[in-house]
Design a protein around this nucleic acid. Structure first.
Lengths: 193, 193
DNA sequence: TTTGTATTGGAACAATCGTTCCGAAATATA
DNA sequence: TATATTTCGGAACGATTGTTCCAATACAAA
């Protein structure tokens, strides 16, 4: 009986993500969304609830995808160091190809929505713990392998590389010059040697 | 003949900075400013021009003060390594004492106002070059001193420590736990050894 | 005290904010 | 084809946005 949806929900979420990612939460208006997504104002509210709910849904998507991507990046590489290298190289390449200089959606949201939004804060804390624990277990794996010196402290390096990863995303917004970013990367990953 | 200003312009700018710093540009309304600054709406426009001009003025202040503080931090310490250590320790302590978890105004502005705002973009690029050049010249000084191994690449490490510094400010918003931050710092500064 | 300028509170501006509602159009099932 | 249900376009909501203007007030200098 019911009429079919005339839009692909996945594609709409993708477009919404792009917009929120580029402009941030507060600077993105419903009118922006309606125009950009190409769906009706009423449909937006019927399907997604409202601006805040849409943002949360979109953000959770990005966050989850990001975590999975990081894990699979390590899985694809045959050494721990190569994994970290690939991870950072990918980020640099993405920054280089991103004409809008959107940076990282997670980092942008961190600085925009904390303090104030407890939902986002909780999600970000979870995200941090998730990625850091991936980093740390990789480093531990490397130590067991003999690939990384056993005198290293996996936790310290894990936290440090997470901070460096975040910082790289900030820097890429100001100056995405791949040469500087690669230099930075080389120095940063030297802590594993 | 003219009546004296009934408010201290310096204090007003300080309060405005606090507000923009905590909430960001877009989430701060003129009404917020009027209420928080305690001055009249008309006075705000007469004295500072408007929201954007006020923000730019406030931001430029923060940026300049920040750069000067960093330079004087190095000047006060007797070794290069101690300088970097003090710089990061100070940032950690500030994050710890900042109940509002505002983070760093420059980092927040970077992620909120780029892309789109060319004025801010230019100021941020200048800021980055300024601080990086301080970092790099300190490292070079350390190499000449013999304090830092001559095989190190000053520029690479300079870029890297700037990124780490930015990343630390992002992390501090999510989880300002000083223990983790100090661990991170220890690993990060080990690139100088 | 008078004069001249600045600041003040508050009204008012058009524009936009996020959100809601409704009648018309569309379409999968019966 | 008839029915049920949803999406659609668009108007409209009250609230708030950044900004401007004005008459009243306050105060330093003449």
């Amino acid at each position: 009986m019911p009429r079919k949806k005339q839009f692909n929900e996945e594609e709409i979420l993708k477009k919404a993500m792009e917009l929120f990612w580029e402009k941030g939460f507060h600077a993105t208006s419903i009118q922006n969304l309606v125009t950009c997504l190409g769906i009706n104002r009423a449909s937006l509210y019927d399907t997604f609830g409202g601006k805040e709910e849409l943002f949360n849904k979109v953000f959770e998507r990005y966050r989850k995808d990001g975590g999975d991507t990081i894990q699979s990046t390590f899985d694809k590489e045959k050494s721990v160091k190569a994994g970290f290298c690939r991870l950072f190289e990918d980020a640099i390449e993405k920054a280089q190809n991103d004409m809008a200089q959107k940076g990282c959606f997670v980092v942008n949201t961190t600085t925009e929505l904390i303090p104030g939004d407890e939902t986002i804060h909780k999600a970000l804390r979870k995200n941090k713990e998730n990625i850091e624990s991936i980093f740390i277990s990789q480093i531990k794996k490397g130590i067991e392998n003999g690939e990384i010196d056993a005198s290293k402290d996996a936790e310290s390096i894990g936290h440090m590389l997470f901070a460096l990863f975040s910082g790289l995303q900030v820097m890429a917004k100001v100056d995405p010059d791949p040469n500087k970013l690669r230099k930075l990367l080389k120095s940063g990953l030297s802590v594993l040697d």
